[in-house]
């Protein structure tokens, strides 16, 4: 059996706008990935724990509430603490350019801003995993 790419799509924090997260999750499924969706309103701790148990290659976080500068660093930090730095973190949401730069420096691999076509995200994932 071939290896399947596994991705966790998470919605940390309190905003309920899961339209983007769900569209991405469905598109990733249609691209042949196994997508674990953890639902709304998740603590960073639960997301990281789920990612570890599911042994995912990537965590994709959708954050539209403006809390990205709090949540991304926390996730990166928890992954380090739990020896799971091999899990790649990417994100999507309404995130200004200068914050994106900071997040990339902290270890977030890539941020997709609104309007990014789903096939671009799929291609990107294929390119970093293979």
């Amino acid at each position: 059996m071939e290896k399947k790419i596994r991705i966790l799509i998470g919605k940390p924090g309190l905003d309920g706008h899961d339209r983007g997260a769900k569209v991405i999750a469905a598109a990733l499924r249609d691209a042949g990935f196994e997508v674990i969706y953890t639902g709304l309103h998740q603590l960073s701790e639960s997301i990281v724990e789920a990612a570890i148990q599911e042994d995912v290659d990537i965590i994709g976080l959708s954050i539209l509430s403006g809390a990205h500068m709090t949540i991304f660093p926390k996730i990166i930090d928890l992954l380090k603490q739990k020896n799971a730095e091999h899990i790649i973190v990417i994100g999507g949401g309404i995130i200004p350019e200068e914050d994106i730069k900071k997040l990339i420096q902290m270890g977030v691999k890539r941020i997709f801003t609104p309007g990014a076509p789903t096939n671009e995200i799929v291609d990107y994932i294929n390119s970093i995993i293979h």
Binding site: L14, L43, S65, G66, T70
Partner: peptide, 11 residues
Amino acid sequence: DPLAQGEVGKC
């Protein structure tokens, strides 16, 4: 609240 962290006054 722990779930509120980073979101206070944001949106």
